[in-house]
Design a binder for these strands. Structure first.
Lengths: 192, 192
DNA sequence: AACTCCATGTAACATGTTACATGATTCG
DNA sequence: CGAATCATGTAACATGTTACATGGAGTT
């Protein structure tokens, strides 16, 4: 029961429609909680029924109307209560690591390609995060920012995302180099 | 449908019982794929029905008997096919990051504590990984190891786990310092 | 004319989590 | 004697994923 909380946390940064939240969750900011659009729509419904968020229809001229959600007092209270409870340990699901675990019984070429894909993805994510960071800092240094801003939370989670992608880049590079070097010296493990 | 593949990958390192796999998944090695014991038992059943693994009952003297699972030829083939398919992007679920995202509207004290817990956990995981690493290297240097071993896959995933926990330690430290410094200068954001 | 973007949803299905049950053995 | 460890499971429930549906506006 925790996408609900992720949604509340996202809405604590300001109101948004389901579609906008879907983009945030699918693409970028929320590197730490993944969800598909369908989940969002479903859980927003439920949050509304539970009185945690309220929806307001915004009519648009040459676009479909949208329902913009914002936190209610109850929602804010629930979010506060959540932040005081101990957090569950993080859970990861990484198919590429599963594939790599079994690399010794396959063609390492596929793994090298997959690592390159991973690295490229990480670079793009990192670039996105860096832009966001510039916008948040708005010309100030980190120390100034910490003193002035009321957005320390989002900044710290953004830093987590940045560090994570930097790690991905470094690590993927190691994987590529290691497997490539092996492929050269040993003539590849063909068959069993 | 991918815990199945994680199980196949785990079994590619040698046969194991459900209970043993549960420990690997719950505690340590498989930092990159989390699962509860119940899931494992259920999916092992299914894998057996599908002919991907075969079970062998091992009678034990002063312990309950156990069913030890190993890959069948079909299972190994399925695993190979899986490693050749493009991997889905990784998915993370991290409650602490959700809490931190909303830190600006709560007491930062709870977040500092949570960060300290996270750091402690990361240290313990890292220590476990380091031990495992020593055992894998068995006195050899990395270069030697890469040249000799048929366990490059597990080693590389282990490295990913190590780097990830090192990141956690560094990042949690930043969070603690930042929030503590803020708590000193500003007299804490009480109420709204 | 075909395609992408905005915007929201339903329904069916697959996975993951929690609570509970069992029963012997070893450790303090 | 109570707790932890080994070892496996069932059942109920909560979440997450996939496929499909709709429909106007702008873009190539």
């Amino acid at each position: 029961m925790s996408l609900r909380h992720a949604l509340l946390a996202a809405l604590s940064q300001g109101e948004a429609s389901g579609y906008e939240l879907a983009k945030r969750f699918d693409v970028g900011v929320a590197e730490f909680w993944s969800a598909t659009p369908q989940q969002l729509y479903r859980d927003l419904e439920r949050l509304e029924q539970d009185g945690m968020v309220s929806a307001r229809v915004v009519e648009q001229s040459r676009r479909p109307n949208k329902r913009v959600f914002s936190l209610t007092a109850a929602g804010r209270e629930e979010l506060r209560a959540f932040t005081r409870r101990p957090a569950k340990p993080p859970a990861m699901r990484d198919e590429f690591l599963v594939q790599l675990q079994a690399v010794d019984l396959t063609d390492p070429g596929a793994a090298v390609e997959a690592a390159a894909t991973r690295r490229e993805r990480a670079r793009q994510k990192l670039a996105g995060y860096d832009q966001l960071r510039e916008r948040m800092l708005a010309g100030r240094g980190e120390t100034e920012f910490y003193a002035e801003s009321s957005q320390v939370g989002p900044y710290l989670t953004l830093m987590a995302g940045r560090m994570y992608e930097q790690l991905n880049i470094r690590w993927a590079t190691t994987v590529i180099e290691t497997l490539t070097r092996r492929g050269e010296s040993a003539p590849a493990a063909d068959g069993e």
